[in-house]
Amino acid sequence: MSPSDGAPTDSREVQLLIAEDDPDVGDGLENRFSRKGYDVDRTTDGEDALREITTLPPYDLVLLNVRLPEKDGFEVLREARRAGVDSPVILLTSKDEHRHKIRGFNLGADDYVTKPFDVKELEARVQAVLDRSAPSTPDTDDVYSFGTVTVNFPEETVTRDGERVEFTSLEFDLLGYFVAHRGRTVSRERLLRDVWGISGDIATRTVDRHVASLRKKIEPTPGDPTYLETVYGVGYKFVEKESPESPASSEED
């Protein structure tokens, strides 16, 4: 079955958590995705959902209803991201207001689907999120460029406008981590764990300071970042877009 048919992206079963208290919706989704080859777990309240989401190994994807008993989906998502969980999350809700969507994305949601939804559209969105979240760790011979910046991973060098930019080892590791996880929100706690090798309930201002230093070296305007975006209340996200410094951006239509 091809990816466009809604099947998992590889031969390994995708670990899917469905957090939905409506039995009709929950049963329907569980049956549908199980038939598609997903390994599906179910939960019906927010407390259990948070417990499941923060259990290792992490889920490949979470379908999270906003209106859950005990703890709503927004709070579940907020606490999961603060705990360093970066599993992709699609919010399911009957609320179609713009402010609710913005709130969900600011908390680190990967997509937002309004009820009632077409199940085939949901399957397509699930597949799209899985495709975007697939690991993209640079190969050993990778040279990655964005805007006027070029990163040579095997040589551990960075140039901007053709000029060498000096990076500390930690700054280079941090940039490499953002590039490997480009397009995904990464929490400060996750950065401390994966880049610094630190875990536990500790202050995260050190991440912010290093990100500020990194922005000075890669951003056209560090105070208004183009690539390394802040996801307020969660962490950061490296995005690929045309640099304002590049020639293409100055061309007239």
Score class of each variant (00 low, 15 high):
2 S>E: 12
62 V>W: 10
98 H>V: 12
29 L>C: 07
59 Y>C: 04
238 F>L: 12
197 G>F: 02
80 A>F: 07
168 T>N: 02
205 R>H: 15
162 G>D: 07
167 F>G: 01
197 G>H: 00
10 D>N: 15
50 L>N: 02
131 D>G: 03
83 A>L: 07
45 D>T: 04
24 D>A: 15
187 S>C: 08
244 P>T: 04
10 D>F: 11
208 D>P: 06
41 D>H: 09
218 I>M: 01
127 Q>E: 11
34 S>C: 10
87 S>I: 04
121 E>C: 08
25 V>W: 10
233 G>Y: 05
145 S>F: 09
40 V>M: 08
19 A>K: 05
1 M>R: 12
231 V>D: 03
152 N>P: 03
174 L>C: 00
40 V>K: 05
27 D>C: 13
164 R>L: 15
77 L>S: 02
10 D>R: 12
143 V>P: 01
223 G>V: 03
3 P>E: 07
45 D>V: 04
12 R>A: 13
58 P>H: 12
189 E>A: 14
119 V>Y: 15
231 V>R: 08
17 L>T: 01
30 E>H: 13
237 K>G: 00
74 F>N: 02
105 F>P: 00
207 V>F: 01
177 Y>K: 08
191 L>H: 04
97 E>N: 12
87 S>E: 06
137 T>R: 14
132 R>L: 13
121 E>Y: 14
200 G>Y: 04
63 L>S: 02
171 E>G: 03
239 V>L: 09
78 R>L: 10
55 T>P: 00
250 S>N: 10
213 S>L: 12
87 S>W: 11
103 R>A: 11
106 N>Y: 13
225 P>T: 03
40 V>Y: 06
93 T>K: 07
13 E>A: 13
2 S>V: 10
2 S>M: 11
200 G>A: 00
48 D>Q: 14
241 K>P: 00
39 D>V: 01
136 S>T: 10
8 P>I: 01
79 E>G: 02
62 V>H: 08
211 V>N: 01
191 L>S: 02
114 T>Y: 13
209 R>S: 14
132 R>S: 06
199 S>A: 09
93 T>G: 05
27 D>P: 08
48 D>R: 13
15 Q>T: 07
36 K>A: 14
37 G>R: 00
41 D>Y: 07
237 K>A: 10
206 T>V: 14
237 K>Y: 05
210 H>M: 07
140 T>W: 14
226 T>L: 05
220 P>D: 04
81 R>D: 01
168 T>Q: 00
22 D>Y: 10
104 G>P: 08
